[in-house]
């Protein structure tokens, strides 16, 4: 990836020579195609790995591949690598806030999952021992 990066810088300085004003940075075609085929390859990879039963690793692997793909799209297609840092900060902050949202909500869900009513017709008093509280009572 670092290799690609340096090439791009060259490509851009080349474009500047053609008299474009300061803010237009046309992407070289070879780079667009490279990124596209990389994305396609990763898609095949993720479909392929889904054939195997990898247990919990499957989620991790799928999401890892998805994140690499998303990174490629954002960095190259969306041109973020050469963009103003503020734009990168904006999109990264959105991801941070999404993780905050998911994180707190999940943290809560872990705590109450076991207090959910599984058998609505059961006698309430049978369930009078709380299980889910993360604060365990002293033994």
């Amino acid at each position: 990836m670092a290799d690609t990066h340096s090439h791009t810088a060259d490509a851009h300085s080349g474009d500047h020579g053609h008299g474009h004003s300061g803010f237009s940075h046309p992407m070289p075609i070879w780079m667009l195609l490279t990124v596209f085929f990389a994305l396609l390859g990763l898609t095949f990879l993720t479909v392929f790995q889904a054939q195997f039963d990898l247990g919990n690793m499957e989620i991790v692997l799928s999401l890892l591949i998805a994140t690499i793909k998303a990174g490629l799209v954002i960095a190259f297609f969306m041109h973020l690598l050469w963009d103003k840092p503020l734009n990168a900060i904006a999109i990264l902050s959105s991801l941070i806030f999404v993780s905050l949202f998911l994180g707190f909500t999940l943290m809560d869900a872990q705590g109450y999952n076991e207090r959910l009513i599984m058998d609505p017709n059961g006698d309430l008093l049978e369930r009078s021992q709380p299980k889910g509280s993360l604060v365990k009572k002293s033994e």
Binding site: A50, I59, A70
Partner: peptide, 23 residues
């Protein structure tokens, strides 16, 4: 519009494994 379109793609990139692949 390109940025917007790539974001739509970006979201699908996550939707595909989450809904279709992970079992």
């Amino acid at each position: 519009v390109g940025l917007y379109w790539h974001l739509v793609d970006f979201i699908w990139i996550y939707l595909f494994p989450l809904l279709y692949l992970i079992t």
